[in-house]
Computed example of a mutant assay.
Amino acid sequence: MPAFSLEPEQQAWCTELRTLAAERLRPVAEKGEPGRVDRALLAELGRSGLLERLFASGALDLCLMRESLAHGCTEAETALALQGLGAHPVHAHGTPAQRARWLPAVADGSAVAAFALSERAAGSDAAALTLRADPDPGAAGGAGRGWRLTGEKCWISNAPEADFYTVFARTTPGAGSRGITAFLVPAGRPGLTGSALEMLSPHPIGALAFDGVPVTADDVLGETDRGFRVAMGTLNLFRPSVGAFAVGMAQAALEATLAHTARRDAFGGKLSDLPTVAHQVAEMALRTEAARLMVYAAATAYDAGAPGVPRRAAMAKLLATETAQYVVDTAVQLHGARALRRGHLLEHLYREVRAPRIYEGASEVQRGIIAKELYAETPPPTGEAP
């Protein structure tokens, strides 16, 4: 399929998702408590079949879901995305027992998943994480092999209310990214506690403390000391869809601005009659469409197993999140003070749009990934520089 075009059935599905977001999910989300996991919203997403589709879809379908839901209900988009992010390592690397225990409950919205990678001193530099997995010779399960997790995680979405966590811990000291293991840790494990963090956006985010939390080989996702691959594989899938989330917000802001400037009286005519305003709106539309196309291209490359996926994913996330920040900010400027009033769509989007430029790799990290991949793809010089 060409990266720049959607099939008619895909376009129709996006229209259905927008309607679902506006008519079914938005009313549920409005009853939720900001900063808390909305289990009623998750249950509604489960009934809609979208959570189950997380595990049957490719990257492009994931992007279409996130973009379409974000257009009408950012809370529903985020709830769906966090379920996918936390549970994808179980889907992709879990044992049959792990998958059977957790994935059906994630799909129907009855179990809340979380992806626990970031730490206070290891956010953008994920390979520098310090949560320790110390050997536990007395472990009973997992063929007699076990560990005790000691340390902290921070900025974890859905914490501390999640039912299980995909936790990344250091099993081999001094080995960098090669000494990290991914563990599936149920919330009820002894020694695991957490606290909520109050953030700019209304998402559930918290910190986790591990005080000798027991895990065994039965809890490992993938292979011991190969957890960094689990983390990066998950992020390569979800980074383009973070861009899709951003595109959905940008599109909502653009449409609100078109409507507002076309009806707002100003200087003897409509606001849209002013060339400076019309040109700003055109720029908003141009950047939004360019970001959308890059997101679709990155997702299509992922689904096709094409080369350069990390670079494409980083480009898509970078361009789309920076674009959404620009578009929403410009929309607020063109709306004036009314856009700053609590409860206005743009006031909501203004708080929502800032975080995606940081999480799952800040914009600076994405530029680093792009540069690293470009130089890796460049043949070494064969002679003297001119």
Rank of each mutant, 00 (worst) to 15 (best):
M1A: 15
E9P: 08
Q11T: 13
R18D: 01
R18W: 02
V28T: 00
V37H: 01
G49P: 02
L51F: 01
R53V: 03
L62D: 07
E67F: 06
A70Q: 10
E75Q: 15
Q83F: 06
G84S: 06
P89E: 09
A111H: 02
A113T: 06
L117R: 06
L117C: 12
A133L: 00
D134K: 14
P137H: 08
A140F: 04
A140Q: 15
G146R: 00
R148D: 12
N158L: 07
N158M: 08
P160F: 07
E161I: 09
F164D: 01
T171D: 14
T181F: 05
A182I: 03
L184M: 05
A187E: 05
G188H: 01
G194W: 02
E198F: 07
S201G: 11
A209Q: 12
P214R: 08
V215D: 04
E223L: 10
R229Y: 12
M232T: 15
L235G: 04
G248P: 09
A250K: 04
H260F: 12
G268C: 04
V277A: 00
R287W: 11
A290Q: 07
G305L: 07
A306N: 07
A314L: 12
L318C: 10
T321Y: 09
E322R: 14
R341I: 15
Y350N: 12
R351S: 13
A371V: 15
